[in-house]
């Protein structure tokens, strides 16, 4: 299974009403077709009343194997359905690479 498919499968535990996993590795200094940098946008009722830091920690816990292995960066944008609607379905852009940490 690809890293992307594995991330998508594991995040089903959060019962997302919307899940978007984007491979942004091509924006970084890694070989072609790498699976190292991802952006996850996840909308779930589960995040209601939960601080952002806790939402992220829940996702990190589910993806501990990926983060300990192939995944180098993971941009997370977790929202409740209400927050997602208020944003009009817009997710933020990830920053550009600065070439460090290789």
């Amino acid at each position: 299974m690809s890293v992307q498919a594995s991330i998508e499968a594991k995040l089903q535990a959060l019962e997302p009403s919307m899940l978007l996993v984007e491979n942004e590795s091509h924006k970084h200094h890694v070989p072609p077709n790498s699976e190292t940098h991802f952006k996850v946008t996840l909308v779930s009722e589960r995040f209601g009343g939960m601080l952002p830091v806790k939402r992220h920690q829940q996702i990190y816990a589910l993806l501990a194997d990926e983060l300990a292995g192939p995944v180098h960066a993971l941009a997370l944008h977790p929202y409740t359905p209400e927050e997602w609607a208020a944003r009009g379905g817009e997710r933020p852009d990830s920053p550009n690479c600065r070439g460090g940490g290789r």
Partner: peptide
């Protein structure tokens, strides 16, 4: 990663 004056990663910057 890096310093405030010279960040070495886009996320840190």
């Amino acid at each position: 990663k890096g310093s405030p004056q010279l960040p070495q990663c886009g996320f840190s910057a």
